[in-house]
Every structure is written in structure tokens, then in C-alpha cells.
């Protein structure tokens, strides 16, 4: 059974100044699934990811053409407010980047900005649920006012996930979330993603093909700015249609 399409990308071209980073990318991403993006370094997968919440807007020389529709609405339309978009499309970064504030304040940051809680109890409620969903609540419940940076790397990354889901987004983008973590912390995050996909649509960029194979339902393979192939993860890793994909997943290049 196919889930319904959440994100629909059509003819996406991205330029950084003179250099073109993405060429005519078309891709459908299904709701409540984990979609993995793989490919060698510099192939455009992170650029693609950052287009989905318009993080590329920050970079002056970056030009985006084409359309990205989330629930049928083009997020590059003029009347889209980028802050509201990012409330719906959360992001977890490669390196854990908790704010130098308390654990509580880290998670309360988003709800405060968007006015999601009417009073203090409601805010606490949101913070606690987010921490619980990110499977870190039990580890930090007694020290919510310690600074977020005092946690271990894996805990920091889960704190960042809690921060991302605190505003209850539809889509969560993950940019190599485990590349700075050890295997145990990685396993915890992967288990967490498995839980989170029930509520959210997750798109993950990863360098680890094993990780893509373990967690994702669908996998897209990028090479030199082109989306070479996107299909069910099993197909990609066993019988891909394209030779380049086969070379990459079997470790012959990249």
C-alpha cells in the first residue's frame, strides 16, 4: 500500500552563483515514510534538503527554480511566509547544535516564538512531550535547567530532535544526523526515527548506505547534481536500474 504524496518536487534547478548544483530534480516523497538521500560528497543531496525548508534563502548567491509542493502548495510562492514554512518543516543538522541555554529553554524556543503555549503549564507540557517523543526525557528530566551543551553528543542530537518536533511539524529534514555520533547513539536515533515516522514525514541525508538500507522505505541516489534514481530501498540496494547506482551501492566508487 502506497502512502499519499506529501512533498512533490518538480524540475528543481539550483545555482550557486555561476555554478549549478542541482539539475531538473523531480521527486515525490510520501507521507509517514522515511526517505533516504544518498550519493557521494558534493552531489547536491544537502542542497536538495535545504531547499525543502528554504534554508538556502540565507545564502545570497543561491538561486532556486522549479517548484516544491508540500500538501499541494508551492513553498516558493510569494505569499508563503518562510518562518511559517519552517514551523511546518523542521530540521536536524549534521552537528548537534543546541543553543547555549538550558535544556528546557532549548525545547521551549520554538513554541515560544510561535506562541504555541498559552501559559507556563502548557509550555511545560509541550517540552515534556517533545522530550519524551525524542526518547531523551528519562535521561534529562531531573536536570532540565542545565545547559544543553553539557549533554553528550548523542543526547545533544536527540535534544535537537526534541527541539525540532516541539513545534509539531509535518516534515522533519535530517542532514546526516548521525555522522558525528558513535554506533550506540546512532542506533538510538535510528530507533527514534522508526517511532517518529508514525507522525511525521522524514527525509534523511546520509553517507552510510547501511543506515539508508536499515531505516528508509525509499531511497534516492544523487550524483553530480542529478537525481539518478529513486525507488524502494530494497530495489536500489539489490537491483538498481542505473549502473552508476549499482557501482555506488556496491562500493565501487564514491
Amino acid at each position: 500500500m502506497e502512502n499519499k504524496v506529501k512533498v512533490c518536487v518538480e524540475n528543481l534547478n539550483v545555482h550557486y552563483g555561476e555554478k549549478q548544483a542541482l539539475f531538473d530534480v523531480c521527486m515525490d516523497i510520501n507521507q509517514n515514510e522515511i526517505t533516504a538521500l544518498i550519493g557521494p560528497s558534493g552531489c547536491g543531496k544537502s542542497t536538495f534538503l535545504r531547499c525543502l525548508n528554504r534554508m538556502n534563502d540565507v545564502i545570497d548567491i543561491c538561486k532556486v527554480e522549479g517548484s516544491i509542493k508540500i500538501d499541494g502548495q508551492n513553498i516558493y510562492d510569494k505569499d508563503i511566509q518562510v518562518e511559517k514554512l519552517r514551523e511546518r518543516v523542521g530540521m536536524v543538522f549534521q552537528k548537534p547544535n543546541p543553543f547555549p541555554k538550558s535544556i528546557f529553554e532549548n525545547v521551549a524556543y520554538g513554541p515560544r516564538i510561535h506562541g504555541l503555549a498559552k501559559d507556563k503549564t502548557e509550555l511545560e507540557e509541550i517540552v515534556h512531550t517533545s522530550l519524551k517523543k525524542a526518547a531523551i526525557f528519562d535521561e534529562v528530566k531531573d536536570r532540565l535547567d542545565e545547559t544543553g551543551t553539557s549533554l553528550s553528543g548523542g543526547q545533544q542530537q536527540r535534544l535537537c530532535i526534541a527541539r525540532a518536533i516541539s513545534v509539531n511539524p509535518d516534515v522533519i529534514l535530517m542532514d546526516e544526523p548521525c555522522s558525528a555520533l558513535d554506533p550506540i547513539a546512532t542506533a538510538k536515533i535510528e530507533a527514534l526515527m522508526e517511532d517518529l515516522k508514525k507522525e511525521y514525514t522524514i527525509i534523511i541525508v546520509t553517507h552510510s548506505m547501511q543506515q539508508a538500507a536499515r531505516v528508509s522505505k525509499k531511497t534516492g541516489f544523487f550524483h553530480l547534481g542529478n537525481l539518478i534514481e529513486v525507488n524502494d530501498t530494497e530495489t536500489i540496494f539489490s537491483t538498481p536500474a542505473n549502473d552508476k547506482t549499482l557501482d555506488y551501492v556496491t562500493g565501487r566508487f564514491g
Binding site: 525548508n53 534554508m55 540565507v58 518562518e83 511559517k84 514554512l85 519552517r86 514551523e87 523542521g90 530540521m91 543538522f93 552537528k95 547544535n97 543546541p98 543553543f99 547555549p100 524556543y109 520554538g110 516564538i113 510561535h114 535537537c160 527541539r163 525540532a164 513545534v167
Partner: peptide, 22 residues
């Protein structure tokens, strides 16, 4: 670090909110 700015923007904060709060 730039990563703190990005973290804040990714939460849907505006530039001035990011400056003030982070």
C-alpha cells in the same frame, strides 16, 4: 557558530528573534 543561527532559523525564527534570543 553559524550552526546556532541555522538552528534558530530552522525553528522558524526571524533574523531579529535569532539575534535577540540566541
Amino acid at each position: 557558530p553559524q550552526s546556532l543561527r541555522e538552528g534558530s532559523y530552522a525553528m522558524g525564527a526571524t533574523k531579529s528573534e535569532t539575534i535577540k534570543k540566541v
